[in-house]
Amino acid sequence: MSFDNLKGVKLNLNELPKQRIQYSSYNPDLERMLGGAREKAEAKEQREIESVALLRSINENTKGLDSVVDLLKNMSAQQEEVLELLKEVLAISASETEEVAEGKYRSVMKKITSTVEDVNTMQTLLGFAKTIYTMATTAAG
């Protein structure tokens, strides 16, 4: 395409008709797209908040496990008793209702305080029992 025939033509932009472009204040297609994007962003943010809360909960609920493992390694004299107490503690997690979990929790707490002689062992077992009880009642509630 050649523009040779336009040589010498002067264009005065002031002589062109003025066009006014008006934008509607409401565009349903644009609103629908923005609304969908907003909903996706809010859903993503909510998932991230829930993920962080779950990770914190897991961290909080498992921080006593290393002390329980150490306890089993170092307790040769009362190892069988400790294992039985741990089984009872873990049975709390199988409770279907909060009331059942509380009953098992109170029972195992009495056994721990009346059976275990070593203070560190007692503290470890009581802490582990509380963690399991908290997890069980959170899941049941």
Rank of each mutant, 00 (worst) to 15 (best):
L125N: 13
V116Y: 07
V69T: 03
G127F: 01
Q123C: 02
V108I: 14
S67P: 01
E60G: 03
V68I: 13
A94N: 11
S95W: 15
T137G: 09
A77R: 15
E80L: 07
T137N: 13
G141V: 11
G141A: 14
K73G: 00
E98W: 09
S93Q: 10
L72F: 05
A91H: 02
K104A: 13
E96K: 15
A77T: 14
R56A: 01
I132H: 04
L65H: 00
V89Q: 07
S57Q: 07
E96Q: 14
T131D: 04
F128K: 05
S107W: 12
T124M: 00
S95C: 15
K63Q: 04
S107N: 14
E60V: 08
A136G: 08
F128E: 00
E88D: 11
N61W: 06
I58G: 01
N59W: 11
E84D: 07
I92D: 01
V100P: 14
V69K: 08
G64V: 06
F128T: 07
M122F: 08
E88S: 09
F128I: 03
L86F: 04
T124H: 00
D66V: 08
L54Y: 06
R56F: 05
K73A: 00
A94H: 11
S95N: 15
T134F: 01
Q123A: 06
V119Q: 06
F128G: 00
T113S: 03
T124L: 00
R106C: 14
S93Y: 13
S76T: 13
T124D: 00
V82H: 02
A53D: 04
L86W: 03
Q78W: 10
L125D: 00
D118Q: 06
V119A: 05
T113E: 09
N59G: 14
L71K: 03
D118M: 02
E99Y: 15
M75W: 11
A101P: 11
Q78M: 10
D118T: 05
T115W: 00
E117W: 10
A77P: 10
V116C: 01
E60Y: 11
E84C: 01
D70W: 02
K104W: 06
K73Q: 01
D118L: 02
L125F: 07
L71A: 03
V100S: 14
T62A: 01
M135H: 05
E81I: 13
A101S: 07
T121S: 11
M75G: 12
R106Y: 13
V82L: 01
T121V: 10
T97I: 12
K110L: 15
T115F: 01
T131Q: 05
M122W: 04
T121G: 02
G103I: 08
T62S: 11
Q123R: 09
V108S: 05
V108P: 04
T131K: 06
L83T: 15
S107T: 14
S114M: 04
G64Y: 09
L55Q: 04
L71N: 03
I92E: 02
N61R: 07
K110W: 10
L90S: 14
E81D: 12
A140W: 11
A140P: 12
L125I: 10
K130M: 00
